[in-house]
Amino acid sequence: MKLFNALVGAFSLSFTVTAAIAEPIVWDMPNEYPATSIQGETDAFFSARLEELSGGEMSIVHHYGGAIGFRSRDQLDAVGDGAVPLANTFIAPLGGIDPLFLLMSLPFLTSDSAEARALFEIAEPHFNTLLESHNQRLLYSSPWAPSGLWSRKEITGLEALKLLKMRSYDANSTKVFRAAGAAPVQLSWADIVPQLSAGGIDGVLTSIEAGLSASFNEYTPVFAALNYDSTINIATINLDVWNGLSEEQKAILEQAANETEDHAWANVDVAVSLAYEEARAAGMTVIAEPDPAYRAALVDRAAPVIAEWLEKSGETGQSILSSFSTAMGREISN
Protein backbone atom coordinates (compact mmCIF):
# COMPACT_ATOMS: atom_id res chain seq x y z
CA MET A 1 0.00 0.00 0.00
CA LYS A 2 1.08 3.54 -0.76
CA LEU A 3 -1.36 5.35 1.48
CA PHE A 4 1.14 7.82 2.85
CA ASN A 5 2.87 9.18 -0.28
CA ALA A 6 0.66 12.24 -0.30
CA LEU A 7 1.75 13.09 3.22
CA VAL A 8 5.44 13.37 2.46
CA GLY A 9 5.23 17.06 1.73
CA ALA A 10 3.36 17.76 4.94
CA PHE A 11 6.46 17.52 7.12
CA SER A 12 9.86 19.14 6.96
CA LEU A 13 11.92 15.98 6.62
CA SER A 14 15.61 16.02 5.81
CA PHE A 15 15.83 12.90 3.66
CA THR A 16 18.75 14.00 1.47
CA VAL A 17 22.18 13.47 2.93
CA THR A 18 25.67 13.95 1.63
CA ALA A 19 28.54 11.51 1.51
CA ALA A 20 29.84 12.77 4.85
CA ILE A 21 28.29 14.74 7.69
CA ALA A 22 28.33 18.30 6.41
CA GLU A 23 24.82 19.70 6.51
CA PRO A 24 22.65 19.00 9.56
CA ILE A 25 20.09 16.20 9.32
CA VAL A 26 16.80 16.70 11.16
CA TRP A 27 14.31 13.84 11.26
CA ASP A 28 10.70 13.79 12.47
CA MET A 29 9.94 10.79 14.71
CA PRO A 30 6.36 9.89 15.73
CA ASN A 31 5.48 7.84 18.79
CA GLU A 32 1.88 7.19 19.80
CA TYR A 33 2.80 7.28 23.49
CA PRO A 34 3.44 10.34 25.68
CA ALA A 35 6.85 11.83 26.43
CA THR A 36 6.37 10.80 30.07
CA SER A 37 6.04 7.10 29.18
CA ILE A 38 8.90 4.63 29.18
CA GLN A 39 8.81 4.74 25.37
CA GLY A 40 8.99 8.53 25.36
CA GLU A 41 11.96 8.43 27.72
CA THR A 42 13.67 5.86 25.50
CA ASP A 43 13.26 8.01 22.40
CA ALA A 44 14.61 11.04 24.26
CA PHE A 45 17.69 9.03 25.27
CA PHE A 46 18.18 7.97 21.64
CA SER A 47 17.99 11.47 20.22
CA ALA A 48 20.31 12.85 22.90
CA ARG A 49 22.94 10.21 22.12
CA LEU A 50 22.54 10.69 18.37
CA GLU A 51 23.03 14.42 18.64
CA GLU A 52 26.01 14.02 20.97
CA LEU A 53 27.74 11.37 18.86
CA SER A 54 27.23 13.37 15.65
CA GLY A 55 28.39 16.64 17.17
CA GLY A 56 24.96 18.14 16.62
CA GLU A 57 24.83 17.22 12.92
CA MET A 58 22.09 14.59 13.33
CA SER A 59 19.00 15.38 15.39
CA ILE A 60 15.39 14.36 15.88
CA VAL A 61 12.15 16.26 16.35
CA HIS A 62 9.86 14.11 18.50
CA HIS A 63 6.11 13.91 17.95
CA TYR A 64 4.70 12.18 21.03
CA GLY A 65 1.13 11.18 21.73
CA GLY A 66 0.23 10.67 18.07
CA ALA A 67 0.71 14.40 17.53
CA ILE A 68 1.04 14.17 13.73
CA GLY A 69 -1.85 11.77 13.28
CA PHE A 70 -0.09 8.40 13.12
CA ARG A 71 -1.04 5.66 15.55
CA SER A 72 1.06 2.54 15.95
CA ARG A 73 -1.03 0.60 13.45
CA ASP A 74 -0.28 3.30 10.84
CA GLN A 75 3.42 3.66 11.41
CA LEU A 76 4.68 0.56 9.59
CA ASP A 77 3.30 1.95 6.33
CA ALA A 78 4.26 5.52 7.25
CA VAL A 79 7.93 4.62 7.59
CA GLY A 80 7.95 2.19 4.68
CA ASP A 81 6.32 4.69 2.32
CA GLY A 82 8.53 7.57 3.44
CA ALA A 83 5.87 9.72 5.07
CA VAL A 84 8.21 9.83 8.06
CA PRO A 85 11.87 8.76 8.11
CA LEU A 86 11.64 6.81 11.37
CA ALA A 87 9.18 5.95 14.14
CA ASN A 88 8.85 4.15 17.45
CA THR A 89 5.99 1.68 17.06
CA PHE A 90 4.04 -0.58 19.41
CA ILE A 91 4.05 -3.82 17.42
CA ALA A 92 1.04 -5.71 18.78
CA PRO A 93 -1.54 -3.82 16.65
CA LEU A 94 0.37 -4.96 13.55
CA GLY A 95 -0.55 -8.60 14.13
CA GLY A 96 -3.03 -8.54 11.26
CA ILE A 97 -0.15 -7.82 8.88
CA ASP A 98 2.06 -10.66 10.05
CA PRO A 99 1.76 -13.02 13.06
CA LEU A 100 5.39 -12.32 14.01
CA PHE A 101 4.25 -8.95 15.34
CA LEU A 102 2.18 -10.84 17.94
CA LEU A 103 5.11 -12.89 19.24
CA MET A 104 6.05 -10.60 22.12
CA SER A 105 2.43 -10.34 23.29
CA LEU A 106 1.86 -14.08 23.49
CA PRO A 107 0.26 -14.46 26.93
CA PHE A 108 2.29 -15.72 29.88
CA LEU A 109 5.18 -16.81 27.65
CA THR A 110 7.84 -14.80 29.48
CA SER A 111 8.14 -14.28 33.22
CA ASP A 112 10.46 -11.26 33.40
CA SER A 113 12.36 -8.73 31.29
CA ALA A 114 15.41 -11.00 30.94
CA GLU A 115 13.27 -13.72 29.37
CA ALA A 116 11.51 -11.18 27.16
CA ARG A 117 14.81 -9.89 25.82
CA ALA A 118 16.05 -13.42 25.20
CA LEU A 119 12.87 -14.14 23.23
CA PHE A 120 13.27 -11.02 21.11
CA GLU A 121 16.93 -11.72 20.38
CA ILE A 122 16.03 -15.20 19.14
CA ALA A 123 13.37 -13.69 16.88
CA GLU A 124 15.36 -10.64 15.77
CA PRO A 125 16.66 -12.11 12.48
CA HIS A 126 13.07 -12.87 11.48
CA PHE A 127 12.02 -9.33 12.40
CA ASN A 128 14.84 -7.94 10.26
CA THR A 129 13.66 -9.94 7.25
CA LEU A 130 10.04 -8.91 7.80
CA LEU A 131 10.89 -5.23 8.21
CA GLU A 132 13.04 -5.23 5.08
CA SER A 133 10.00 -6.44 3.12
CA HIS A 134 8.29 -3.27 4.36
CA ASN A 135 11.18 -1.05 3.23
CA GLN A 136 12.65 -0.36 6.65
CA ARG A 137 15.36 -1.40 9.04
CA LEU A 138 15.28 -2.09 12.77
CA LEU A 139 17.10 0.44 14.93
CA TYR A 140 16.25 -0.78 18.43
CA SER A 141 13.71 -2.65 20.51
CA SER A 142 12.25 -1.05 23.63
CA PRO A 143 10.30 -3.10 26.19
CA TRP A 144 7.17 -2.31 28.11
CA ALA A 145 6.83 -3.35 31.71
CA PRO A 146 4.72 -6.52 32.11
CA SER A 147 1.02 -5.92 31.55
CA GLY A 148 -1.57 -6.00 34.30
CA LEU A 149 -5.18 -4.91 34.68
CA TRP A 150 -6.30 -1.41 35.69
CA SER A 151 -9.87 -1.35 37.02
CA ARG A 152 -12.35 0.71 39.00
CA LYS A 153 -12.77 -2.08 41.57
CA GLU A 154 -10.59 -4.93 42.77
CA ILE A 155 -10.64 -7.96 40.47
CA THR A 156 -9.13 -11.03 42.05
CA GLY A 157 -10.77 -13.87 40.13
CA LEU A 158 -12.75 -14.89 37.08
CA GLU A 159 -16.10 -14.15 38.70
CA ALA A 160 -15.16 -10.48 39.22
CA LEU A 161 -13.72 -10.37 35.70
CA LYS A 162 -16.98 -11.58 34.16
CA LEU A 163 -18.39 -9.13 31.59
CA LEU A 164 -15.83 -6.44 32.51
CA LYS A 165 -15.74 -3.86 29.73
CA MET A 166 -12.00 -3.53 29.24
CA ARG A 167 -9.40 -2.36 26.79
CA SER A 168 -7.28 -5.00 25.07
CA TYR A 169 -4.50 -4.12 22.65
CA ASP A 170 -4.23 -6.94 20.13
CA ALA A 171 -5.88 -10.12 18.90
CA ASN A 172 -4.10 -12.22 21.54
CA SER A 173 -5.32 -10.27 24.56
CA THR A 174 -8.82 -9.93 23.13
CA LYS A 175 -9.14 -13.71 22.78
CA VAL A 176 -7.68 -14.53 26.20
CA PHE A 177 -9.91 -12.16 28.16
CA ARG A 178 -13.01 -13.01 26.16
CA ALA A 179 -12.38 -16.67 26.99
CA ALA A 180 -12.06 -15.63 30.65
CA GLY A 181 -15.53 -14.07 30.57
CA ALA A 182 -14.67 -10.39 30.15
CA ALA A 183 -15.90 -8.07 27.39
CA PRO A 184 -12.66 -6.79 25.83
CA VAL A 185 -12.46 -4.23 23.04
CA GLN A 186 -9.26 -3.53 21.16
CA LEU A 187 -8.34 0.14 21.49
CA SER A 188 -5.40 2.28 20.45
CA TRP A 189 -3.66 4.21 23.21
CA ALA A 190 -5.18 7.53 22.18
CA ASP A 191 -8.71 6.14 22.55
CA ILE A 192 -8.38 4.87 26.13
CA VAL A 193 -8.91 8.03 28.20
CA PRO A 194 -11.96 9.17 26.18
CA GLN A 195 -13.51 5.72 26.70
CA LEU A 196 -12.67 5.71 30.42
CA SER A 197 -14.08 9.17 30.98
CA ALA A 198 -17.27 8.35 29.07
CA GLY A 199 -17.75 5.03 30.87
CA GLY A 200 -17.27 3.02 27.71
CA ILE A 201 -14.74 0.82 29.48
CA ASP A 202 -14.07 0.01 33.14
CA GLY A 203 -10.69 -1.65 32.80
CA VAL A 204 -7.45 -1.37 30.84
CA LEU A 205 -4.84 -4.01 30.07
CA THR A 206 -1.45 -2.30 30.18
CA SER A 207 1.54 -1.87 32.46
CA ILE A 208 1.61 0.04 35.74
CA GLU A 209 4.13 2.48 34.29
CA ALA A 210 2.19 3.18 31.10
CA GLY A 211 -1.08 3.76 32.95
CA LEU A 212 0.48 6.22 35.36
CA SER A 213 2.05 8.15 32.49
CA ALA A 214 -1.49 8.80 31.19
CA SER A 215 -3.11 9.32 34.64
CA PHE A 216 -5.36 6.26 34.41
CA ASN A 217 -5.50 6.34 38.21
CA GLU A 218 -7.99 9.19 37.92
CA TYR A 219 -10.48 6.69 36.48
CA THR A 220 -9.26 3.24 37.53
CA PRO A 221 -7.59 3.39 40.97
CA VAL A 222 -6.81 -0.34 41.17
CA PHE A 223 -3.92 -2.12 39.44
CA ALA A 224 -3.46 -5.89 39.53
CA ALA A 225 -0.14 -7.21 38.33
CA LEU A 226 -0.74 -10.24 36.11
CA ASN A 227 2.64 -10.44 34.35
CA TYR A 228 0.48 -11.10 31.30
CA ASP A 229 3.19 -10.41 28.73
CA SER A 230 6.28 -8.29 28.10
CA THR A 231 5.60 -6.76 24.73
CA ILE A 232 7.74 -4.16 22.99
CA ASN A 233 8.01 -1.18 20.72
CA ILE A 234 10.45 -1.13 17.83
CA ALA A 235 12.14 1.92 16.34
CA THR A 236 12.65 1.59 12.59
CA ILE A 237 14.11 3.74 9.82
CA ASN A 238 13.06 3.97 6.18
CA LEU A 239 15.42 1.81 4.12
CA ASP A 240 15.90 4.45 1.41
CA VAL A 241 16.89 6.97 4.07
CA TRP A 242 19.30 4.47 5.60
CA ASN A 243 20.86 3.65 2.24
CA GLY A 244 21.37 7.34 1.56
CA LEU A 245 23.53 7.82 4.64
CA SER A 246 27.30 7.82 4.57
CA GLU A 247 29.17 5.02 6.31
CA GLU A 248 30.10 7.48 9.05
CA GLN A 249 26.46 8.44 9.57
CA LYS A 250 25.36 4.81 9.63
CA ALA A 251 27.97 3.99 12.27
CA ILE A 252 26.85 6.89 14.45
CA LEU A 253 23.20 5.93 14.08
CA GLU A 254 23.90 2.29 14.90
CA GLN A 255 25.92 3.20 17.99
CA ALA A 256 23.19 5.49 19.29
CA ALA A 257 20.56 2.78 18.60
CA ASN A 258 22.56 0.02 20.30
CA GLU A 259 23.17 2.16 23.38
CA THR A 260 19.47 3.03 23.47
CA GLU A 261 18.40 -0.60 23.32
CA ASP A 262 20.71 -1.54 26.20
CA HIS A 263 19.44 1.44 28.19
CA ALA A 264 15.79 0.58 27.56
CA TRP A 265 16.06 -3.05 28.64
CA ALA A 266 18.17 -2.17 31.70
CA ASN A 267 15.71 0.54 32.73
CA VAL A 268 12.42 -1.36 32.58
CA ASP A 269 12.62 -3.08 35.97
CA VAL A 270 13.64 0.18 37.65
CA ALA A 271 10.66 1.88 36.02
CA VAL A 272 8.30 -0.75 37.43
CA SER A 273 9.61 -0.34 40.99
CA LEU A 274 9.30 3.42 40.80
CA ALA A 275 5.80 3.13 39.34
CA TYR A 276 4.64 0.94 42.22
CA GLU A 277 5.94 3.51 44.69
CA GLU A 278 4.25 6.34 42.80
CA ALA A 279 0.95 4.46 42.55
CA ARG A 280 0.81 3.68 46.26
CA ALA A 281 1.79 7.24 47.14
CA ALA A 282 -1.12 8.44 45.02
CA GLY A 283 -3.49 6.29 47.04
CA MET A 284 -3.96 3.52 44.51
CA THR A 285 -4.64 -0.09 45.40
CA VAL A 286 -1.81 -2.19 43.96
CA ILE A 287 -2.16 -5.97 43.89
CA ALA A 288 1.44 -6.95 43.24
CA GLU A 289 0.83 -10.71 43.44
CA PRO A 290 -2.37 -12.07 41.88
CA ASP A 291 -4.16 -15.01 43.45
CA PRO A 292 -2.42 -18.15 42.07
CA ALA A 293 -5.72 -19.79 41.14
CA TYR A 294 -6.85 -16.66 39.25
CA ARG A 295 -3.62 -16.44 37.29
CA ALA A 296 -3.65 -20.19 36.60
CA ALA A 297 -7.16 -19.85 35.17
CA LEU A 298 -5.95 -17.10 32.84
CA VAL A 299 -2.94 -19.16 31.81
CA ASP A 300 -5.27 -22.04 30.97
CA ARG A 301 -7.34 -19.79 28.72
CA ALA A 302 -4.20 -18.50 27.05
CA ALA A 303 -2.96 -21.89 25.86
CA PRO A 304 -5.25 -22.01 22.77
CA VAL A 305 -4.00 -18.56 21.75
CA ILE A 306 -0.40 -19.78 21.66
CA ALA A 307 -1.46 -22.88 19.73
CA GLU A 308 -3.33 -20.75 17.20
CA TRP A 309 -0.35 -18.43 16.80
CA LEU A 310 1.93 -21.41 16.13
CA GLU A 311 -0.43 -22.61 13.43
CA LYS A 312 -0.50 -19.20 11.74
CA SER A 313 3.23 -18.52 12.04
CA GLY A 314 4.24 -21.93 10.73
CA GLU A 315 7.86 -23.02 10.71
CA THR A 316 9.07 -19.56 11.75
CA GLY A 317 7.00 -19.54 14.92
CA GLN A 318 7.84 -23.13 15.76
CA SER A 319 11.56 -22.44 15.32
CA ILE A 320 11.42 -19.36 17.58
CA LEU A 321 9.49 -21.04 20.39
CA SER A 322 11.58 -24.20 20.16
CA SER A 323 14.79 -22.17 20.49
CA PHE A 324 13.28 -20.15 23.34
CA SER A 325 12.16 -23.31 25.14
CA THR A 326 15.70 -24.71 24.88
CA ALA A 327 17.25 -21.46 26.08
CA MET A 328 14.90 -21.29 29.09
CA GLY A 329 15.18 -24.99 29.89
CA ARG A 330 11.41 -25.45 30.09
CA GLU A 331 8.53 -26.55 27.93
CA ILE A 332 6.30 -23.97 26.26
CA SER A 333 2.67 -24.93 26.73
CA ASN A 334 0.41 -24.70 23.69
Results as ranks from 00 to 15, higher is better:
residue 210 A to L: 15
residue 212 L to C: 08
residue 214 A to S: 15
residue 216 F to C: 04
residue 217 N to I: 09
residue 218 E to C: 08
residue 219 Y to L: 01
residue 220 T to V: 14
residue 220 T to C: 15
residue 222 V to N: 12
residue 222 V to K: 07
residue 223 F to R: 06
residue 223 F to D: 09
residue 225 A to S: 15
residue 225 A to T: 14
residue 226 L to E: 03
residue 226 L to A: 11
residue 227 N to V: 07
residue 227 N to Y: 13
residue 227 N to C: 00
residue 228 Y to S: 01
residue 228 Y to V: 04
residue 229 D to I: 00
residue 231 T to M: 12
residue 231 T to I: 05
residue 232 I to H: 12
residue 232 I to V: 15
residue 233 N to G: 05
residue 233 N to Q: 14
residue 233 N to M: 14
residue 233 N to E: 11
residue 233 N to D: 14
residue 234 I to M: 15
residue 235 A to I: 01
residue 236 T to W: 10
residue 237 I to N: 08
residue 237 I to H: 06
residue 237 I to S: 10
residue 238 N to D: 11
residue 239 L to R: 13
residue 240 D to C: 03
residue 242 W to H: 05
residue 243 N to F: 00
residue 246 S to C: 03
residue 246 S to I: 03
residue 246 S to K: 09
residue 247 E to T: 10
residue 247 E to R: 08
residue 247 E to D: 14
residue 248 E to H: 04
residue 249 Q to T: 10
residue 250 K to H: 12
residue 250 K to S: 03
residue 252 I to P: 00
residue 252 I to V: 15
residue 253 L to A: 05
residue 254 E to T: 12
residue 255 Q to H: 06
residue 256 A to L: 04
residue 256 A to Q: 04
residue 258 N to F: 12
residue 260 T to L: 04
residue 261 E to C: 02
residue 261 E to H: 05
residue 262 D to C: 01
residue 262 D to I: 00
residue 263 H to T: 02
residue 263 H to C: 03
residue 263 H to M: 13
residue 264 A to L: 04
residue 265 W to D: 02
residue 267 N to L: 13
residue 267 N to H: 13
residue 271 A to K: 02
residue 273 S to E: 14
residue 274 L to N: 15
residue 275 A to N: 01
residue 275 A to K: 00
residue 275 A to D: 02
residue 275 A to I: 03
residue 276 Y to K: 12
residue 277 E to G: 08
residue 277 E to W: 00
residue 279 A to Y: 03
residue 279 A to C: 09
residue 279 A to N: 04
residue 280 R to C: 01
residue 280 R to A: 06
residue 281 A to P: 00
residue 281 A to T: 09
residue 284 M to R: 06
residue 284 M to F: 03
residue 284 M to D: 09
residue 284 M to L: 13
residue 284 M to C: 13
residue 285 T to H: 06
residue 285 T to N: 10
residue 285 T to S: 15
residue 286 V to S: 02
residue 286 V to I: 15
residue 287 I to A: 13
residue 287 I to D: 13
residue 287 I to M: 13
residue 288 A to T: 11
residue 288 A to M: 06
residue 288 A to H: 03
residue 289 E to D: 15
residue 290 P to E: 05
residue 291 D to S: 08
residue 291 D to H: 06
residue 293 A to T: 15
residue 295 R to P: 00
residue 295 R to M: 02
residue 296 A to V: 03
residue 297 A to H: 09
residue 298 L to D: 10
residue 299 V to M: 11
residue 301 R to M: 13
residue 302 A to Y: 01
residue 303 A to Q: 11
residue 303 A to S: 12
residue 304 P to N: 08
residue 304 P to T: 01
residue 305 V to Y: 11
residue 305 V to R: 09
residue 306 I to Q: 11
residue 308 E to L: 04
residue 309 W to L: 10
residue 310 L to Q: 14
residue 310 L to R: 11
residue 312 K to T: 08
residue 313 S to N: 14
residue 313 S to R: 08
residue 313 S to F: 05
residue 314 G to W: 04
residue 316 T to H: 03
residue 316 T to A: 07
residue 317 G to V: 04
residue 317 G to M: 09
residue 318 Q to D: 14
residue 318 Q to M: 07
residue 319 S to M: 07
residue 320 I to W: 11
residue 320 I to S: 07
residue 320 I to F: 12
residue 321 L to T: 06
residue 323 S to T: 13
residue 324 F to W: 10
residue 325 S to T: 10
residue 325 S to F: 02
residue 326 T to V: 09
residue 327 A to F: 05
residue 328 M to F: 01
residue 328 M to W: 01
residue 329 G to R: 04
residue 330 R to K: 14
residue 330 R to H: 02
residue 331 E to K: 13
